[in-house]
Design a protein around this nucleic acid. Structure first.
Lengths: 214, 214
DNA sequence: GCCCACAAAACGAATGCTCATTATTTTTGG
DNA sequence: CCAAAAATAATGAGCATTCGTTTTGTGGGC
């Protein structure tokens, strides 16, 4: 029973997924035709339907791939010794190294999650994973006396997620937005939110609200 | 030459626009058919095309209406004497009083702005209006000595927009998100960002996170 | 105030096209 | 060699938009 070798099978699937991501980022899920994706991937409809049983399945597959990337990246954060350095690493990964269409597709998935059950479930699982990751991390930092925030770990995580959402949204939607220029200020805001105790944190807490940047 | 009276004409147009907003929020621009909108509005395709020459025109009309609402709301902010009270007012307007589909449609417009020139122009004009409104406001507050921020008015406005984006996104996409619970914490973050001088600001700076008052 | 003429407005069936998906045939890799 | 994989052609549903017709609101004349 001659099937394609698992490696090539996975490669073909990934190729289609990549093409789909590009097309979806360009035009959105519902304004992209299967033919568009076939053209981009260089395969025929017949071939595409070997790997994905429907357009929905393709979207779900993309969401699933996205989930795995997200979880891989944020899993590192939990083990990081220097929180702010790790944070900067993730920020760089998403906003500097990644191409724009990766961010765009996240928004696309997020919006679709409100109306497609399968995508919704995947998206929610990522979201909860990230949020609880941060909450646990903050709790640990509080318990260790490394930060003295004014609010609970849960509240910190909530605000933190909101800020992350905002960065994601704006960097995808506003072409003139300069992430690199904004991230330091945002990190400053987070630093004050967490209020780290002055010791071996990555940077000096600085004077009250002083010229930490300079 | 008997035309419909301007009032009824505007009423019909608004009725269609309202129906379109509902449908678009439910399913997205490109997964909504003109027939869907006709059904929701209770008119025939022929009637709809009297008021809007195409689906694109309808989307643009919606974006335009959105712009006017936005500008009306934020125009007040510039004249407010108590910044934080005004801010809370706007927050309430968007996140408590408004129905969910109003927020959803903002995201829809934002995403569409990256791929549709007309929508893009409208969306950008709103965005720049809001951003420059805040920047001017912050500058004035700095000049008046009411706040002592660590950064320029432009940087403040940038961070501020990001946080606003995040609130918008999350309150539309995360059904379990409790805006009411989060807003006080967000306001606290903004307060620290601005670092108001302790005098007649709306609320006490409070001590937990800082001796901002000193 | 009432009616009329008539163009605007509304209707809804029709159009032509695009789409996701499938059925049929050919190619290919194990 | 031969089933899986891929290509191509076909299908039928659904789409935005148009068109020929009917209905309706309105300003002018009485």
């Amino acid at each position: 029973m001659p099937r394609l070798k698992p490696d090539t099978q996975r490669a073909r699937r990934d190729n289609i997924l990549e093409a789909a991501e590009l097309c979806f980022a360009r035009a959105g899920f519902h304004a992209t035709s299967m033919q568009d994706i076939c053209r981009e991937a260089g395969v025929s409809p017949g071939a595409l339907y070997v790997y994905f049983s429907s357009k929905e399945d393709l979207i779900a597959g993309l969401a699933e791939r996205n989930r795995q990337e997200f979880q891989a990246r944020f899993a590192q954060l939990a083990e990081a010794t220097d929180f702010f350095a790790a944070l900067e690493g993730i920020g760089n990964a998403y906003f500097v190294e990644d191409e724009a269409h990766r961010r765009q597709i996240c928004l696309e998935i997020g919006l679709e999650s409100t109306r497609n059950a399968t995508v919704g479930e995947i998206h929610r699982s990522v979201d909860e994973f990230v949020a609880s990751n941060f909450e646990n991390l903050f709790q640990r930092m509080i318990d260790d006396g490394r930060i003295r925030p004014a609010h609970s770990a849960a509240a910190l995580a909530r605000v933190f997620m909101v800020i992350g959402d905002g960065l994601f949204w704006r960097s995808a939607v506003d072409r003139k937005f300069d992430v690199a220029k904004t991230i330091p200020d945002v990190v400053e805001v987070i630093r004050q939110l967490l209020n780290p105790v002055a010791d071996n944190m990555s940077r000096q807490p600085g004077k009250p609200l002083g010229e930490a940047a300079e």
